[in-house]
Design a protein around this nucleic acid. Structure first.
Lengths: 159, 159
DNA sequence: GTTAGCGTACTCGGATACCGGTTGTCCGAGTGGCAAAGG
DNA sequence: CCTTTGCCACTCGGACAACCGGTATCCGAGTACGCTAAC
C-alpha cells in the first residue's frame, strides 16, 4: 500500500482537531511530522479530487475538510490515494494456451479463483468503510487525552 | 498484489487434478497457460520454500503438492509469493517532528491508525485462510464439469 | 546374456539484467494582503 | 484621515526526474535414464 495513506490519515485527523473551517497549508502539515512538503501536497491534491478535502489558494490558504469527519471513512482515503482497482487482478489465464484453446466461450462463467479473492477483498473494503475518521479520533482522545491540545498548540505557535 | 499469485493458484489446481504423486516440470505448467517458464519457476520455488509444494530434480522431475489440497489455503499461497508483511506499515510518524518532540514515550500506546488498518487486514487474511484450494476445485468442477478432464488430457498428450 | 560404466539430456535453484511505478522535486498560475501614494 | 492602486509573498496545481521492487531471463549443480562395451 502507498505510504501516503498513512500521512493522509494523520493529516486529516490534525485538520479535524484544528477545526473544519481553518485552512492549513501543506507545508505546515508536513512540518508537523517532518515529511517532504511537496510530496504530501501531492497526496492532499488526490484527496481534493476525491472530494474529501477542499483547497484554498493564495496566502492564508491551504487545505480543509470538505465534509464532517464522521462521514469520511478509511476506505475513502485509501481509494483516493491508492486507487480504486482491487489488489488481485484476474488476467483470465484460463483462456490462454492449452486450456481453452485461446478462445473465450460464448457465455463465460466468472473465474472461480478471482471470485475467491474478491470475497476476501470485499471483507477488507467493508472493514475500511465501516471505520470513520471520527471513530479513530474518539479512540485517540481516550487513549491519549493530551494529543489534541498538543496539536492545536503546535499549529497555533507555528502559524 | 504480485501477479505470480494468480499463476500459482491455477498451477496448484492443475497439480491437484493431475494427481498428488505426479511431478510436473515448471515448463509444462507454464506452457499450459503460455506463461514465461523461468519466471513461473521462480514462483513455484517460493511455494517450495513455504512448504506448499515439493520439488523433484532431474529428468522426470518437477513440482508436486506437498500436502492434501484441502489443507492449502489461499492465505498460504499469498504469504509464500507476496510475502508475510502487511500492506499498511506504520512508520510511527506521530513521534516525529512537532508532535512528540522526536522522543518516544516510556510506555508507548499502539498507534490507533495502525490498529484500524490492522483490523481490516485481519478480516482479509481471515477470509483468505478460510478458503482452501479444495473449495475452489469443487466449485470449478460444478460450474465447469469438463475442465478437470481437459486438463488431464492436455498434460497427458504433452507429457 | 548380463552388468558395470559413462555420457547425455532434463530438471530445479539461484544469480543476474530490465522496466514500470511509487517516491521525490521543481516551477508556474493565481490570489489575498500590505504599503505607499494621492485626494 | 480615507481610498485607491500597485507590488509582493504565499498558496495550490501539475509537470518533471530519481530510485526501488516486481518482472523477466540466463546459466550452473545435480540426477535419472539409456547406450555402450566389457566380462
Amino acid at each position: 500500500m502507498n505510504e501516503g495513506v498513512e500521512w493522509a490519515v494523520h493529516s486529516c485527523l490534525n485538520l479535524a482537531w484544528l477545526g473544519a473551517d481553518r485552512a492549513v497549508p501543506a507545508s505546515r502539515l508536513a512540518a508537523f511530522y517532518e515529511l517532504p512538503a511537496a510530496y504530501l501536497n501531492k497526496q492532499l491534491q488526490a484527496l481534493v479530487r476525491a472530494g474529501v478535502l477542499g483547497s484554498v489558494p493564495g496566502p492564508k490558504g491551504g487545505f480543509r475538510l470538505a465534509r464532517p469527519i464522521s462521514e469520511i471513512t478509511l476506505m475513502d482515503v485509501v481509494a483516493a490515494i491508492d486507487g480504486e482497482d482491487e489488489a488481485f487482478r484476474c488476467t483470465e489465464i484460463r483462456y490462454r494456451g492449452g486450456s481453452g484453446g485461446g478462445r473465450v466461450p460464448d457465455n463465460p462463467k466468472p473465474c472461480t479463483v478471482a471470485t475467491a479473492f474478491r470475497k476476501a477483498e470485499m471483507a477488507w473494503r467493508r472493514e475500511l468503510a465501516a471505520q470513520t475518521l471520527a471513530d479513530i479520533m474518539i479512540t485517540v482522545e481516550r487513549t491519549n487525552p493530551g494529543a489534541p491540545d498538543r496539536v492545536r498548540r503546535w499549529f497555533d505557535d507555528n502559524r
